[in-house]
Amino acid sequence: MKVCNDGFERKFIEEKSDMYAIAFTQNVLSGRWKYFILWYLKGTTRRYSDIKTFLGDLSQGSLTKQLKELESDGVIKREVYPVVPPKVEYSLTEKGNKLMPILDMMEKFGTEYGVESNKQT
């Protein structure tokens, strides 16, 4: 599998469509904070400052990068209001909402097996 600057190679997409589908989804979700951002936006609209507070020690630059990538991939929507001070809100798009079952399954798996794997022996 080869990923180039413009995405995946056409040959890979055509010959390995099942692997491409997984790789595409992984690419959309890649990034340390994207899962948490999407989960936090689940079912509600949030201001930038709320997301920043929720994620704690994450730098402004890192958060902005993750949000821009999610917006570029079409899974979140950014709305800027013409007020002072600036007001920016983020919400899930239809495409973003379709990722929620994946996060729900990850939560379920982690709930079931996460504690087990972190037990002190």
Rank of each mutant, 00 (worst) to 15 (best):
Met1His: 10
Met1Lys: 09
Lys2Met: 07
Lys2Ile: 09
Val3Ala: 15
Asn5Leu: 12
Asn5Gln: 14
Phe8Gly: 11
Glu9Tyr: 08
Arg10Val: 15
Arg10Lys: 15
Lys11Asn: 09
Phe12Val: 14
Phe12Glu: 13
Glu14Cys: 12
Lys16Thr: 09
Asp18Tyr: 10
Met19Phe: 10
Met19Asp: 12
Tyr20Val: 08
Tyr20Cys: 09
Ala21Asp: 09
Phe24Leu: 11
Thr25Trp: 01
Thr25Tyr: 05
Gln26Glu: 03
Gln26Lys: 07
Asn27Gly: 08
Val28Asp: 02
Val28Pro: 02
Leu29Tyr: 02
Gly31Thr: 06
Gly31Glu: 11
Gly31Val: 11
Arg32Val: 00
Trp33Asp: 11
Trp33Gln: 11
Trp33Ala: 11
Tyr35Thr: 06
Phe36Gly: 04
Ile37Thr: 08
Leu38Ile: 15
Trp39Phe: 06
Trp39Pro: 00
Tyr40Met: 09
Leu41Arg: 01
Lys42His: 10
Gly43Ala: 09
Thr44Met: 12
Thr44Asn: 15
Thr44Trp: 12
Thr45Glu: 15
Tyr48Asn: 04
Tyr48Phe: 15
Asp50Tyr: 09
Lys52Ser: 10
Lys52Pro: 03
Thr53Glu: 04
Leu58Cys: 10
Ser59Ala: 12
Ser59His: 07
Gln60Gly: 06
Gly61Trp: 02
Gly61Glu: 09
Gly61Ser: 13
Ser62Val: 13
Thr64Gly: 04
Lys65Ala: 14
Gln66Arg: 04
Gln66Cys: 06
Gln66Ala: 13
Leu67Cys: 06
Lys68Asp: 08
Glu69Thr: 11
Glu69Leu: 12
Asp73Ala: 05
Gly74Phe: 01
Gly74Pro: 02
Gly74Val: 03
Gly74Leu: 02
Gly74Cys: 01
Val75Tyr: 03
Val75Glu: 04
Val75Gln: 06
Ile76Tyr: 06
Lys77Glu: 12
Val80Ala: 14
Val80Glu: 13
Tyr81Phe: 15
Pro82Asn: 10
Val84Leu: 05
Pro86Arg: 12
Pro86Tyr: 08
Lys87Met: 00
Val88Leu: 02
Leu92Lys: 03
Thr93Phe: 05
Lys95Cys: 11
Lys95Arg: 15
Gly96His: 04
Asn97Trp: 02
Leu99Ile: 09
Met100Cys: 03
Pro101Gly: 05
Pro101Phe: 00
Leu103Gln: 00
Asp104Phe: 04
Asp104Tyr: 08
Met105Phe: 11
Met106Cys: 10
Lys108Met: 04
Phe109Val: 12
Phe109Asn: 07
Phe109Lys: 05
Thr111Cys: 07
Thr111Leu: 07
Thr111Trp: 04
Glu112His: 13
Val115Thr: 13
Val115Arg: 14
Glu116Asp: 01
Glu116Arg: 05
Ser117Glu: 07
Asn118Cys: 09
Lys119Trp: 02
Gln120Arg: 15
Gln120Glu: 15
Gln120Trp: 14
